[in-house]
Design a protein around this nucleic acid. Structure first.
Length: 261
DNA sequence: ATGCCGGGTACGACCCGA
């Protein structure tokens, strides 16, 4: 089976590209971020027409995540535990019962955290700590768990074309990277980094000709629990979508698993 | 460093992203 994560930067603006891409690539599961739409207005019909179930957690204007899948999930969760008052739609989980196994998939949109002197940075770090606690408690089940999405974390200098540009940015500060590595130290595998040493980016800013200059960063990640990393077959970053008409500033990240879906 | 682009909201400029 193949699973992809893609920050679409507005699902309504990206719908033609999303539909074309789904038809071309036939993913089994897709984790979307920055849908920027309430659940009631989610553009269901064309996506369902291609054979996908939809689990979404959205809000007006900002954030919003979804999971599209060729099977219907047995269970859906739309809140990251740890803060009852958190109204931001950044987490959706879908649980799939497969032949003798369970696959748990999360589409997540970690806060950006800039500017770092504002409340946004502690909110980011707190959200990442909540994700860590969630991941840790789920590992006890020894299921296949996939955390896929826009982490807004540049893990290492190799993950930026110009790392010195990011040293004071919330995406690359030591506290942010430590929080990401804490997740890795639970046993989660960064699927792209496990598969290749090549520098490869998932985001290029719309501004300043970042795409033309390949001034990119790798911030969209697929993290595999030990049971899931055991069946990792391969990965890719679908850079060509950044060159399409009306692109998102992010491109899809793909993971292939040795698993029937 | 800021906000050069792009989306959303709403219809005139704002906020937000990374």
């Amino acid at each position: 089976m193949k699973i992809a994560t893609w920050n679409v930067a507005g699902i309504r603006a990206r719908l033609p590209n999303l539909i074309k891409w789904l038809k071309n690539e036939q993913p089994d599961i897709v984790c979307l971020q920055e849908t920027k739409i309430v659940n009631e207005l989610f553009p269901r019909s064309m996506i369902e027409g291609l054979g996908y179930s939809i689990a979404c957690s959205g809000q007006k204007s900002f954030n919003g995540v979804a999971i599209l899948a060729k099977k219907s999930p047995d269970e859906t969760i739309t809140k990251l535990p740890g803060d009852e008052n958190d109204e931001q739609a950044r987490f959706v989980e879908a649980v799939f019962s497969l032949n003798k196994t369970i696959l748990r998939v999360v589409s997540l949109y970690c806060p950006n955290g800039n500017p770092t002197e504002s409340a946004k940075f502690p909110y980011k770090l707190n959200w990442m700590e909540r994700l860590y606690q969630y991941a840790k408690s789920n590992l006890n089940h020894e299921e296949m768990l996939i955390l896929a999405g826009d982490f807004n974390v540049i893990p290492s200098p190799v993950d930026a074309r110009y790392p010195q540009q990011w040293v004071k940015d919330a995406l690359f500060l030591p506290q942010t990277r430590q929080s990401f590595f804490k997740l890795c130290n639970l046993g989660f595998v960064d699927a792209i980094r496990a598969s290749t040493d090549d520098p490869s980016y998932t985001f290029w800013d719309f501004q300043s000709g970042a795409w033309a200059k390949n001034n990119g960063i790798r911030i969209d990640h697929v993290m595999l629990s030990p049971r899931a990393s055991d069946i990792l077959k391969g990965t890719s970053i679908q850079k060509d979508l950044r060159g399409w008409e009306k692109p998102s500033d992010h491109v899809p990240v793909w993971v292939h698993l040795d698993l029937d879906f």
